[in-house]
Design a protein around this nucleic acid. Sequence first.
DNA 1: GACAAACGCGAGTGGTCGCTCGCATTCTTG
DNA 2: CAAGAATGCGAGCGACCACTCGCGTTTGTC
Lengths: 212, 212
Amino acid sequence: MSGTSEKEQPRRRQARGERRIAQLLQAAAQVFCTTGYTAASTNAIAREAGVSPGTLYQFFPNKEAIAIELGDRLVHEMREAYGEALAPVDPGTPVEQAIGSAVDRFMAFNTEHPVFFALMHGPDIPGRMAEAHDQLHTTVTARIESLLASLMPGADPADVTRRAHVCLGVYKAGLELVLAHEGAERAAYIQEVKDVLVRYLEPLVGERPRHG
Amino acid sequence: MSGTSEKEQPRRRQARGERRIAQLLQAAAQVFCTTGYTAASTNAIAREAGVSPGTLYQFFPNKEAIAIELGDRLVHEMREAYGEALAPVDPGTPVEQAIGSAVDRFMAFNTEHPVFFALMHGPDIPGRMAEAHDQLHTTVTARIESLLASLMPGADPADVTRRAHVCLGVYKAGLELVLAHEGAERAAYIQEVKDVLVRYLEPLVGERPRHG
DNA sequence: GACAAACGCGAGTGGTCGCTCGCATTCTTG
DNA sequence: CAAGAATGCGAGCGACCACTCGCGTTTGTC
């Protein structure tokens, strides 16, 4: 029987501390964005935030915890703002509209928070971060699966899963292109991503059988 | 006027040395594949090859040179084996066939040499390596562009360029999925990639104008 | 105002990694 | 076989990085 107070309250923060945390997370986002996670040094993050390394470690036990907290906050914000973007649609909804609005929402979020892509995409993510990545990936894939299932009822579940993975992969690839451009070119690339997805999925919703 | 012998012959290699180089490159490919470039330590590469760190530096001036040489050999081999995969096709060739054979060839090469993807994809590539990456990227994109141009003559060059980038991005995303699976699933994903590309490009080759 | 707790600092510590150096061994060449 | 070059070794050097520690400052509480 272990003690009753296994989890001690980590600390009692002051308003100043919360501000510092936000400041440090913003600085970390900046540094992660430009150099990636592994190449980002904690000293650089502290410098970017205008504080000393010791101050950084006052609020985060280690480098990984910074990325974890940043990722958690981003995931939370994404869930709040765009959680319904992949909800199953009415049977009558045209595919263009469903895909278009979903792509628009996620593109907006990702261009507003480029760190998200940087943290989730790099092969240099730490162990605990990979878990979070996998969990989010699974969640999003499941959402896409149910969306696809609502579009093409009676299809082989394995096919639906595979197509969901392909859709997410296409979106990620498109996101990379979108983030690499600005203005009109960026808008044009967003439209291309929609086109790719719509044309990929359109033959599946029309109930004429596909010869494979 | 600078001296005539600016570039000294670096060294006169024995057969043993060439063998060691091949051995070291193979070990480096293994380590790069599993841990990525930055996380790969030269000591680990030497250990994998069964030699000492000093021996490694007998043949490569630094860590970057290992990746460069490996990349150069891979690019060379790819050019030799699959250089014609993206050649422009006869006007009568169906799109399915052109895309199918190109995807098959590149997928075969990339699954046979997974290091290639690891070296070209990671955000942790060194400066000189990024140049090689960009150069290859440009070359391949130009090839795709001319292939697309032969399929849809009279299109806006900017559109062609954009679509070429989208095609390459879709291929890369598909490659990631393909490399993550094996056997029948892998084959199914390859087919999905072909489907995505064919359906993306099919409306463009029929000469009815697209309203954009 | 007094006390404690949270905050802030930055030089320092232990560890890792890229890379070197001196020396031993093997090969080529005459 | 002798000389020199190429190959092979592995302890160790310098740099960098995640993280710590002791001490001074600010803030909340009574």
